[in-house]
């Protein structure tokens, strides 16, 4: 990608000439620096292709998502409570529109429910979110579950 700028002005003046003057810098080959960057590009590209091929053959092809949810922290947020949640997918496929439902129960009675939808939970990845409740989750029983997903 070498482009010797300083010769541009010269060339502009010569523009009507049908042929390039001999010895202009555009004729130059590839410099060592250029080859170094090109080598980096080659390594990056072959690394990515290698990973993808390996992934296709040995890794993720096939198998459903395996999505679980766990509470991370409960924070009092004004007159309500926030339960931070972490959704993890340990499966071999991505889940889209992953819906998580949280419920606060006291004995047999359900105090309240909240739901949240994650656009995507890719394979082997985690996503964070939160559920709001009016009741204090500390003084009730909190249950979280992943309701379902769609294939992206």
């Amino acid at each position: 990608m070498t482009t010797p700028r300083k010769t541009t002005a010269n060339r502009r003046k010569k523009a009507p000439a049908p042929d390039r003057a001999p010895g202009e810098a555009k004729e130059r080959g590839t410099s060592t620096w250029e080859w170094a960057v090109a080598a980096v590009g080659g390594v990056i590209l072959s690394g990515m292709v290698g990973y993808l091929v390996w992934d296709a053959i040995a890794g993720s092809a096939g198998g459903p998502p395996d999505i679980t949810v766990a509470p991370a922290a409960t924070i009092a947020a004004g007159d309500r409570y926030l339960v931070e949640i972490v959704v993890a997918n340990r499966g071999q496929a991505t889940g889209a529109d992953v819906r998580v439902r949280g419920a606060l129960t006291d004995g047999d009675q359900t105090l309240e429910e909240s739901t949240v939808t994650f656009d995507f939970v890719p394979e082997q990845s985690t996503r964070r979110g939160g559920l709001y409740f009016a009741h204090d989750p500390q003084s009730a029983r909190l249950s979280l579950r992943v309701e379902g997903y769609v294939e992206p």
Binding site: M1, T30, E34, W35, V37, A38, A39, V40, G41, G42, I44, L45
Partner: peptide
């Protein structure tokens, strides 16, 4: 080829 690989690196 060098040009192509430099473009990919960038």
């Amino acid at each position: 080829l060098a040009d192509a690989l430099v473009a990919i690196a960038v």
